[in-house]
Design a protein around this nucleic acid. Structure first.
Lengths: 366, 366
DNA sequence: CCACTTAAGCAACGCTGTTGCCAAAGTGCA
DNA sequence: TGCACTTTGGCAACAGCGTTGCTTAAGTGG
């Protein structure tokens, strides 16, 4: 698409805002911003002046002088906006509130059953989100307007709600596909229905994509990595060149049904020797080391095929024995001469945090 | 990086130029350009006026009237610039000259032996490129300046030379890595040496990446596809979202050493059950159908993992029995319920044509 | 022949980042 | 304490982008 002057303006503003974000608490000076963006210092001054006027950035002290006027440090104003992230797992609902910097302010969790159908589950999501925003009906009334909040400071702008759930689904349309075992969700307009109920923009994505997005936006994250999630299923979130890879049908990252044993055991997907089936079978037998080795083979395939910088492991099964899996995968990679480091993704709220980033990311041009 | 006004200008110019390119012979009107770019018609008028003044575009007749003034058709001026593409294969050198539209004007081919070392092979490359540009020494002199040419019309600007060779290599540095069987090429500054010899910009890339780039820039190419190349080795060029995926180490597309038979036959790479070894063994046994089925499994893994729209097969082995491979791969995909169509990449010069695109693509913002 | 429609250029404009200049705010030596 | 020097960062003028409002060009159709 063509770029006109307003588009240029918002692009540069988002870029500067992103640098402020990744600089974190310590902040960043105007001249450093100019170096990093390639813009002139004067342009950066104008942009940051606008951002400060909008309340998105603020001055925060000075650096030590290097012989002249000391640089003024700028930082992101985290309280300028808020976002909600929802992780809708097969048996549990996690909802959390973050500020503009992605810092988690409050977490709410409750058991749910996806099999109960979209209606009751979306009721639960609505309740939890309203509770987070302080707009929960206190006397049975749904009429409390968003904005008048307890948790979100007065005047705090809520950007929207990001919802992550197991795939397959259509990210653009915001509609789940045929979730294995939960056919009734297929085609249900989850995004539009939640948006209508909450009066807020809603973004829907796969759990693995959300987690990968959250990891990708951490300061100093590698440009390309794979988030490998082993829970009730096996999937991956792929980040290439800093951006999550979704594919046209939001189908990218389907790691579970990679054939790794030609003519192996038949899988429910119609294939044979699928990575997920082999790996979960080993887990079921209690052979976690073997499961890790199988997972490592899948990870090695990823590293080789996509030339990625890092592998991050997560998901309930991995988090139950993190070092077993990390070490097992690491061994396979090093055994093949691959140098990509293997790490562990952060705790159990990683997907919900990533879901919040679904609505925060556009502010930073991501 | 930040965007300033000149950057905006060249971005939009490249965008318009790319639309002119993909419109081909039939051209495209200003209003259509405005719709496709999202710019106003007046902005398109200004941009196309500049492009015409630079000789990159020209008016080419009119469309039929729809009740008012008929639209003026614009088209790319293919003779505005030229490029050279070189395919340096293990035993053969192909060099060709294209115009700005990528149309091949002349092809030269000669046997080479990569094992002879970089010196003699780069001598051969230099000779062929000079011959294409009409700057070959006629009386033993190397002093003929580029530009005074026989093949390239007078005043024709040569953008540069794209060179494609088997990986691994470093695209950014323009230096081959440890090419299997040809260790002496490792670290040789191929790009810089050729650039110095020819006095032209040189871009170096893997053969599969070049071929994939050429395919990606065809009009109406799918946004995401895999070019799967089966020749002396097995590799892939991955195009995601219209752009080739190289990875930070130009290592992406390493399809040959995907493990598809866990604990299978050991491979020279240190792994076991690698796709390339299995596939080439089947070819060696004369079992092309089985080779196609194995290749299909690898392709299916690609389609599932990356959610791509199409698989294109190429390479010497495939082209020797194109329908056997296409049908074999197609069967595997449909058997798994995957709808991505399987096609065949064009003839034997596909890699060299793609190599020429390495230098043409930046003109079109690609 | 003329009303109408559509395409495309001209001129004025708002806004972008850039440039040249200057005030502000430090350091460090005499 | 004073002064030269360095560095930061805002002010003002500017070139150039796409946009807007209008006019002219060039067709169709009754």
């Amino acid at each position: 698409m063509g770029v006109n002057v307003p588009a240029l303006r918002s692009h540069n503003a988002a870029l500067v805002l992103d640098l402020l974000r990744t600089a974190g608490e310590s902040g960043i000076s105007r001249l450093e911003l100019a170096e990093r963006t390639g813009l002139t210092p004067q342009a950066v001054s104008k942009i940051t002046a606008r951002l400060r006027a909008e309340g998105l950035a603020a001055e925060a002290g000075h650096r030590a002088s290097t012989g002249g006027k000391p640089r003024t440090v700028l930082r992101l104003e985290p309280s300028a906006a808020y976002a909600v992230g929802v992780h809708l797992d097969r048996d549990e609902l996690t909802a959390l509130l973050t500020d503009l910097a992605g810092t988690v302010l409050e977490v709410r969790r409750r058991p749910v059953d996806l099999g109960a159908g979209a209606g009751p589950v979306l009721d639960a999501v609505t309740e939890e989100v309203r509770a987070l925003l302080g707009t929960a009906p206190t006397g049975g009334s749904d009429a409390v307007a968003p904005g008048r909040s307890r948790t979100v400071p007065a005047g705090g702008r809520v950007l929207g709600v990001g919802v992550a759930m197991p795939g397959p689904l259509d990210h653009r349309a915001g509609v789940p596909g045929r979730v294995t075992g939960f056919p009734e969700w297929a085609g249900h307009p989850v995004r539009d229905e939640l948006a209508a109920r909450l009066g807020l923009p809603v973004v829907l994505d796969k759990d693995t994509n959300a987690a990968a997005l959250g990891l990708a936006l951490r300061p100093a994250a590698p440009g390309s990595f794979a988030y490998v999630h082993l829970g009730t299923g096996l999937g991956a979130g792929l980040v290439l060149g800093g951006a999550p890879l979704r594919g046209d049908r939001t189908g990218a990252g389907e790691l579970g049904h990679q054939t790794v044993r030609l003519d192996g055991e038949p899988c429910g997907c119609g294939g044979r020797g699928c990575l997920e089936a082999l790996c979960l079978a080993a887990v079921a037998r209690g052979e976690l080391g073997e499961a890790a080795r199988i997972l490592g083979t899948g990870a090695a395939n990823l590293v080789r095929l996509l030339d990625i910088d890092q592998v991050l492991l997560g998901g309930r099964v991995v988090l139950a024995a993190p070092e077993v899996f990390a070490e097992g995968v690491r061994e396979v990679l090093t055994g093949l001469g691959l140098t990509a480091p293997v790490g562990l993704a952060t705790g159990r709220d990683g997907v919900a945090e990533g879901a919040a980033w679904l609505t925060l990311a556009p502010v930073f041009g991501k």
